[in-house]
Write a protein that binds this DNA or RNA. Sequence first.
DNA 1: AGAAATTGTCTCGAAATCGAGATACTTGAT
DNA 2: ATCAAGTATCTCGATTTCGAGACAATTTCT
Lengths: 157, 157
Amino acid sequence: MRRSPTDVPLKLWVVLARAFDAVERHSRASIARFQLGTTEFGVLEVLYHKGELPVCEVQRRILVESSSTTYVVDKLVQRGLVRRRASGSDRRVTLLALTPAGRQLIARIFPPHAAAMRRAVGALPARQQAAALRLLRALGTGAAERLTAKEADHDHD
Amino acid sequence: MRRSPTDVPLKLWVVLARAFDAVERHSRASIARFQLGTTEFGVLEVLYHKGELPVCEVQRRILVESSSTTYVVDKLVQRGLVRRRASGSDRRVTLLALTPAGRQLIARIFPPHAAAMRRAVGALPARQQAAALRLLRALGTGAAERLTAKEADHDHD
DNA sequence: AGAAATTGTCTCGAAATCGAGATACTTGAT
DNA sequence: ATCAAGTATCTCGATTTCGAGACAATTTCT
């Protein structure tokens, strides 16, 4: 339990947070050019690439809580970029899709944003990007599994 | 400029965000056990490990904006965990330090939190943790440099 | 079929975070 | 010595995000 001078797990967490922060600043700045917040952009982007989706599916992909998702979607609907529609098969779910205006907007701004993000991570050579991709994928899914496992613990105690 | 079916940089950004989110949930949950927010914990932790520091130094390490730092420090001062003190050498700066109560608190809760974070990233074997550490460090500093470079661009145009 | 647990969405109030800018001090250039 | 630019901290108002929980619909279990 004692912390050695090089406690790799703890450092990994710090460095992960710093890397995320630095790259996210690129993302924020890039998206701000288009008068959008990152979460709003996230909704538009996922609908653009995946097509019509239930709210809960969008929520999982943009990594915010459900109440925040409702809030952001409200704004996008008011702006006429997204529309809601009841699902036929499951009457709990609301399906989200881009309006023509929304599609036009995201089609226009996605490419320059993608370019900004390529630049943001571009300090890492391609080979190392691929390595980081693999490691982060394993780290993320591993951590996520351990989260749901812990929740299960709580449930039966 | 066209997006190939495997656009590594873009995927890297997505996977980075997901990994950060998953690990951060562990952190949040662990810290919530002690009735603290992550930012409050961050302040206590940095003061615990680095000793008395100027506000701006703390700010840089906890990765929030200066106005948020003031807000969080206010709360910690009100709770009697941190104290402010004017610097002798530079009259702009306020130095922050733990009170005895603050030191006692963080000394008690840091070890179990560290253990939780080791578990959070523990799905990755030690060797891969070390590799991820190196790659993320390079990614983070690279992205940060490109940020300040871009700011400089804006300044002279 | 009926009860219990789960899931999907939303409401509401509270908390965290930001951004712009005010103020005071320091540093660097001329 | 003065002035411009930069830095440190804080204030204030607005925005974003969360958390708890309400409610309806679905699924699972018996």
